[in-house]
């Protein structure tokens, strides 16, 4: 079950989720079966509001599925796991803590000694290229830098699984592609399993080993697309014909899905 490093596999088996709200029941995920093999980078893409974040919450143990099971490394996920880290769209940093103390926070609440956790946090800051900013405060950083701090914080516990919910969604296009490139570099070194939500097809292809295309709500798996581009990924990736083919394939699936529902062609934003 374990791959390179301490990566673990993530399996969804016939997972359904229904939100019980004031206006009745909202099905968000219906009968999804799929797995992220240990050490793989998988992207989730699908129409807006189809249930991507919901699926991530299930994987993170924040939301129990209505039926079906979610397993991490072969054991059922019943609550938040210490081997799972999450990165959200907002960096969710603690503004009163320095960058270093933010990165060290997960270790601090686990009771790791100060010297040890600071050394480890400093190491992660180097990994994300922020070694000069250990003593800065989040308010002194740009949006992209803040998100790098949040990624460092997620990696500081050496997770088996990393869940990322549109981590670059709030960044401008240029920063976004740069951050994507950096994330691949970082990930190629740490090698945990990743489930990455995005609504950017190019980003999904560029980063992933595999892309799951989801249907409109409630989310079903439409297709799994194997990204057979060699790693480490080249800088001129978007110019390669294979990259464009894969992009077109995902685009086609999403377009068909929106046609089937009789809505104008638009991919989730």
């Amino acid at each position: 079950m374990s791959g390179p490093g301490n990566a673990q596999s993530l399996e969804f088996e016939d997972v359904c989720l229904e939100y019980a709200g004031r206006h009745g029941v909202t099905p968000a995920v219906s009968g999804l079966t799929a797995s992220v093999d240990a050490g793989r980078f998988v992207s989730l893409i699908g129409p807006s509001g189809c249930g991507k974040s919901t699926l991530l919450d299930i994987a993170g143990g924040l939301l129990p599925p209505t039926s079906g099971v979610c397993r991490l490394g072969g054991t059922d996920v019943t609550g938040p796991q210490s081997t799972t880290s999450m990165v959200f769209q907002e960096a969710a940093l603690l503004p009163w803590r320095s960058v270093l103390d933010n990165v060290a926070f997960p270790l601090e609440v686990k009771g790791v000694r100060a010297s040890e956790r600071r050394a480890r946090a400093a190491e992660l800051l180097r990994t994300v290229g922020l070694d000069g900013f250990a003593n800065a405060y989040p308010s002194e950083l740009s949006g992209g830098m803040r998100q790098r701090v949040s990624i460092a914080r997620a990696l500081v516990t050496d997770p088996a699984l990393l869940l990322m919910d549109e981590p670059f969604g709030a960044l401008d296009q240029q920063t976004r592609s740069m951050m994507g490139l950096e994330l691949t570099r970082t990930w190629e070194r740490v090698q945990c399993s990743v489930l990455f939500v995005t609504h950017d097809i190019g980003e999904a292809v560029a980063l992933s080993d595999e892309v799951w295309v989801l249907s409109r709500r409630p989310a079903r798996l439409l297709t799994r697309i194997e990204v057979d581009l060699p790693r480490p990924r080249a800088d001129d990736l978007p110019l390669q014909p294979r990259f464009q083919e894969l992009e077109a394939e995902i685009w086609g699936t999403l377009r068909e899905e929106s046609r089937a529902m009789g809505v104008p062609e638009r991919v989730g934003v």
Partner: peptide, 29 residues
């Protein structure tokens, strides 16, 4: 207190006391 910080305390599985002391109180100051 921003929802994103509330999510963080849940994702890190903090106890009520730890969340109050380390996140909510300083965030509320």
């Amino acid at each position: 207190v921003p929802r994103s910080l509330v999510r963080l305390t849940r994702a890190l599985d903090l106890s009520r006391g730890t969340a109050l002391r380390k996140v909510y109180l300083p965030a509320a100051v």
